[in-house]
Each structure stands twice: as structure tokens, then as C-alpha cells.
Simulated scan of single mutants.
Amino acid sequence: MSSRAAPFIVLVAGEASGDNLGAQLIDALRARLPQARFAGIAGPRMIAAGCEPWERAEELALMGLFEIVPHLPRLLRIRRRLRARVLEQRPDVYIGVDAKEFNLRLAPVIKAHGIPTVQYVSPQVWAWRQGRVRTIGRAVDLILCLLPFEKPFYDAHGVPAVFVGHPLADRIPLHLDPYEARDALGLVRQQICIGLLPGSRRGEVARLAPPFAATVKWLLERRPQLQFIAAPANEPARRILTAALAEAGVAERVRLADGQAQQVMAAADVLLLASGTATLEAALVKRPMVVAYRLGWPTSFLLKTLQLFRAPFFAQPNLLAGRQIVPEYFNRQVRAEVLGPALLAQLERADREQLMQTFTDMHGMLRRDASASAAAAIVALIDDGTECEAHGERRA
């Protein structure tokens, strides 16, 4: 155990999903290290769990290769402040909770000063820019993987990694009643329901809200009896989505349930959603879905031109299944005349029971008490670092 009476742990998270993971990890670490102190870049859930916020997690909620450029001066200032504070206070471990681009640029400096470094949530290095695996190996002492196929990839490159399972699989019940969810959301029990989840980042929502709204209009022109519900992740997402729905003339037909993504998933017969963790959550809720992914044109051009993306799919259910079990659409395909028919096809798919079984199998595979498993691996790393110090060694 750390030589300190109260181990000091720094965590750095970005956006809502990282904040959720970080809060659960803090609780699991405190169960093992009751006197531990936590600080770093935190969102509201991590702060409520007892993390001292040096900066706010929302400051790191960006995506895309080129879309981040206008924000670089601010991000660099945050990184300089964080680096100085970490090196001055020398925590027992530095944990990057998602926010891969930010954390993996800072981690090598911290590791070089003898502070153990962990990345909780692997970058999609197996999917694109695979050469980064060598850089990652030099930057961190341990990768905590949420998906089972990630560990073998790191093993093959000699990078220490542990598959801990996914916290969502631990938290989501094996069965969620759609009628209970519809009652809670004020929806009609017997009326077909389509759920909309256009993401959480502003840029992502701005790119997806207009085609999602156009898809609602397309569907209503053919199935006027459908009911729709959307779950804006935050206030900026709500404003963007509301404007897009109004522009399409369908605002009155879409009920909004702010921040209630899982309830919306449970209520829906089929989902139209942004690519990302939400697709895994939808699979764990056991709902058919249509997945959309749109990037800004500079990032899209670079990915296509340099052939940086290597994975066969981008939707997590498809990656886990090793085949396409839900439809996924990218950039120019993300338009109403594509998404609308795809949603109707999901409503009518003949293999729905088989799909539900596939989702159930995924749930079992990922349910490993992830936060506790991650905490155990981190405590072992701290103990290892303490032993090195006791023998006068310096961690490489």
C-alpha cells in the first residue's frame, strides 16, 4: 500500500460518460482505500463522489481531429496547469478516465517522473491509427479495457492490459419493462414508439439533429400514428435538437425527456441514435437500433484519404458480435430517406428474438463488476509502486 496514510489519487475525465465511470471508480476505490483523497478534472458525479475539481470535465468534451483545433489554446492551458499540479503534489497514481487524446498526451510526462499512470477505457487503437499502440505502451503502466477483444490486441503488442468488463452491464438490469418506462414518460402504452438520441457533444448533436428531425418527418408522412421521444443529454443538446425539430415542423410530435436516455431506450420499440457508448447501452437494454455517425468534413476526408480507420464496424454491438447485427450509417448516408426505411425495417425484422438473445449474451459477457475489478487492478499497481520505492527503485 502507499506510504501515505491517505493515498492520493488523481483522475481526469471528459464529458458525461467519463464522469459516470469516474464516480463509480471513486466509490470502488474508496471501498478498498477508505482514507484515499481524490482530485483532478471532474464532472458533477465525480464531485459528488468526493473528487476535488481542479478543472471541470465539460472542458474536455470535444471530438474529431480538426474540430478540436479552435479549442487547442484553452486545452493546452488546462494541460499545463494540470501537469504542474500533478508533478508538485505527486499522487500515488494518475488515472485517465476516457478523454484519451488529452490524457495520453499528458501521461508520458507524468510517468517519466515516476508516477504510475493508468488509462481507464482504451482508445480505439484497434480500429484506427494502430501504430499508436507503441506510444500508448510508453505512456501508461496499465490499460483497463471495457471490451473483451481489446486485451488480446494489447497483449500482442506487449502492453499491460486488464479486461474489467463494462460498468453499464453491471448497472443495467437484464430486463427493463417497456410499459413501465412508457408510463413513467407519459407515453401511450400500445402505440409504437421510436426513441431519438442524437448524442451529447455540441458538434455531434449539431450534425445529427437535422437529419434525425427530417427522419421523424419522413416517418410521420408514412406512419402518422407513431409516437416519438428524445433524450437530450444536456441543455445545449436540447436547444440544438429543439431548433432542428421546429425547422422540420415536427416539434409538437416529439416528447423530450432530458437526461433520461436509459428510460427512453426502455420505452422505445426501436432507437435512432448516435454512435458511441449509447449503442452499447441500447444493446444492454435489448432494443433494436439504427446507428448514425457524422464527422466534420476535414476529419472525414483525412480518415478516408489516409485509410486510418481499420475496424469493420463502428457501432459497438456490431464490434462485439463480430458481424453487423444492427444497421449503421456514416456521413452522407445519414439522411431521412436512408434512416427512415432502416427504422421501419428494424420494427419489422423477423429475427427479433435472435437479436434479443445476442444482446443478452453480450450482457452476460460484459457483466464483471467492472468498477471493483478496475479498482483492484489500480490498487495492485499502487502496491507495486510502493514496493519499488521501498527497494530504492524507480518505476520505468
Rank of each mutant, 00 (worst) to 15 (best):
A380E: 15
R202L: 13
A61S: 09
G40F: 00
H363S: 12
A181R: 00
A181Y: 03
R222G: 10
A84D: 15
A237L: 10
P108H: 13
K111F: 08
L219A: 04
A372L: 01
S17K: 08
A274N: 08
P73W: 02
A61P: 00
R171I: 09
T305C: 11
L256P: 04
A5H: 13
R182V: 03
V10S: 04
P198L: 12
A31S: 13
S275N: 05
A342M: 03
K111R: 15
N234E: 13
L355D: 02
Q89E: 15
R81P: 08
P7Y: 06
R202P: 06
E58T: 12
L168I: 04
Y179A: 15
P116Y: 04
Q225M: 14
P198T: 10
L271W: 02
V270L: 05
C388Y: 12
A161K: 02
Q24M: 13
M365Q: 15
Q357L: 13
I47H: 02
R30Q: 13
F359T: 01
G96L: 06
L219F: 08
Q124R: 12
L320S: 03
Q357H: 08
K286L: 11
D369Y: 05
H166W: 05
C193N: 11
F309D: 12
M289N: 00
E281Q: 15
V285C: 03
L284W: 02
L82D: 00
L82V: 07
C145F: 05
V162C: 05
L25I: 03
A181V: 03
G40D: 00
Q227L: 03
Q263D: 14
I172Q: 01
L185N: 06
T135S: 15
R335N: 09
L65C: 07
F38S: 06
Q307V: 14
I382A: 02
L21Y: 09
L220E: 04
A278L: 08
A28H: 03
A268P: 08
G296I: 10
P160R: 04
V162R: 04
V109E: 14
A283R: 04
P178W: 01
A380N: 11
E67L: 07
G64S: 12
P224M: 11
E252W: 02
S371A: 15
E235P: 11
S373G: 08
E337W: 09
S122M: 09
G340R: 02
L256V: 07
I172N: 04
V133M: 07
R287A: 04
G385A: 11
V97L: 03
L147T: 07
P91S: 01
P148N: 08
N234Q: 08
A246G: 14
A161L: 06
C51L: 14
P167I: 06
